[in-house]
Design a protein around this nucleic acid. Sequence first.
DNA 1: TACAACCGATTGCGAAATGCAATCAGATTG
DNA 2: CAATCTGATTGCATTTCGCAATCGGTTGTA
Lengths: 172, 172
Amino acid sequence: MNTEHRSGCPINLSLEVFGDRWSLIILRDMIFGGRRHFRELLNGSLEGIASNILADRLKRLMELGLLTKADDPSHKQKAIYSLTEMAITLVPIMAHLGAWGRVWLPVSEELSIRAELLEKGGPPLWEQFMDELRHEHLGLPAKTPPGTPGVRAQLQAAYEAVVARKAESATA
Amino acid sequence: MNTEHRSGCPINLSLEVFGDRWSLIILRDMIFGGRRHFRELLNGSLEGIASNILADRLKRLMELGLLTKADDPSHKQKAIYSLTEMAITLVPIMAHLGAWGRVWLPVSEELSIRAELLEKGGPPLWEQFMDELRHEHLGLPAKTPPGTPGVRAQLQAAYEAVVARKAESATA
DNA sequence: TACAACCGATTGCGAAATGCAATCAGATTG
DNA sequence: CAATCTGATTGCATTTCGCAATCGGTTGTA
C-alpha cells in the first residue's frame, strides 16, 4: 500500500481511495449486485468497465484493504472476491451518495428505486444490510432468522418491479 | 454541461461529478475553510493544487451547478465563488466520508478533529451548519440569533486547540 | 479426445488528464 | 511609479485512462 499521502485530512484520504471513476462502481456492484467474480463484474457492469481497468482496481482495492480474494473450490481458475469490514461500512456513504444523486442528477427511475428504498429505510435498514454483507462476505453468523428476505433481495425485487411496470405501460 | 452519462444510476452519476482527485477537495475548502477566492483556494490548499487544475475544476463545478461566481465589489479583479444549495447538501456526505476516513485511514489528529465533532454532532449539527452556509452563500436569513458562534468557527477553534496542545506538549 | 466456451487477467497503444513552471494583463498598494 | 496582488492561461513532460486484442489455462460437451 502506498504510504505517500497528500495530507492527513480524512476527506482527502477518503478521496485518495475513491477519487477515480471506477473503484466505487466496483464496490457498488459487489454490495448491491452481489457480484463476486471477475466476469460478473466485467459483464454485469452497466457502465462497461474494461477488463484491464477492472483488474487494476481489484488489485488496488485489495492492497488498500477493501477486498480479499480467495479460490473458488468449484473451479480452479475462479477467484471469489469478498468485501472486508472496511468496505461494508461504506454502505451509509453509498446510501447518502445515492440520495444526493437522486435529488440533483438525472437519474433513471428503475436505477434509483434502490437508492429511494435505502434512504427511506434509514440507518436501521443500512445496519441490517451491513449484517447481511458480513454474513455473506465475512462468514459471521446471520442475525436474522433463516428464511427472512434479505435487504439486497428486497432492493432487487423493487428494481425488477419498476422495470416490469415500465415495460407494461409501454406496451399498453 | 455534458449530458453524456455512463448510466442513470445515482451512485454512478454522483461519481461522474466527484470521481476525480480535486473537485471534492475544493468544495471541502470552501465549506469547512470558508474560502471564497481563487488565491485562497490555491494557496490555502494543504494538498497543493495547481492553478490550472483549480481553474479547470472551478469552471467545471460551475457548469455542474455546484458553484456560482460573482464580482467582488471591493476589488474589480476579485471573483467570489459561492456554494449553491446543491453543494451545501453535500455536508452530510462530507461528514460520513470524514467519519469513515477517521476509522480506516491514517488521518492526522489535528485534521480529524473537525470530522470527529461533525460526527458527534450528527444530523442536527449538519443542519445547523447547512443553514449557516445558506446564510453566507445564498443570502438567506440566519436562523440563529446574532452573536451565536457558527459551526465552522467552532470546528476551526477545536482544530486550533489541538494544534496548540500538540505544540505545547512538544516543547514541554 | 477434440473443441468451443469460459476463467482471470495482460499487453499495446492512442487519448486524455495531471501537475509543474513560467507567464499574462489589469488592479491595487506603498 | 514600482512592487505586489488579482484570477487566470500557456507550454510541456509525465502519468493515467480506457478500448481492443490477446494470453495460457480450465471446464463442459460431444
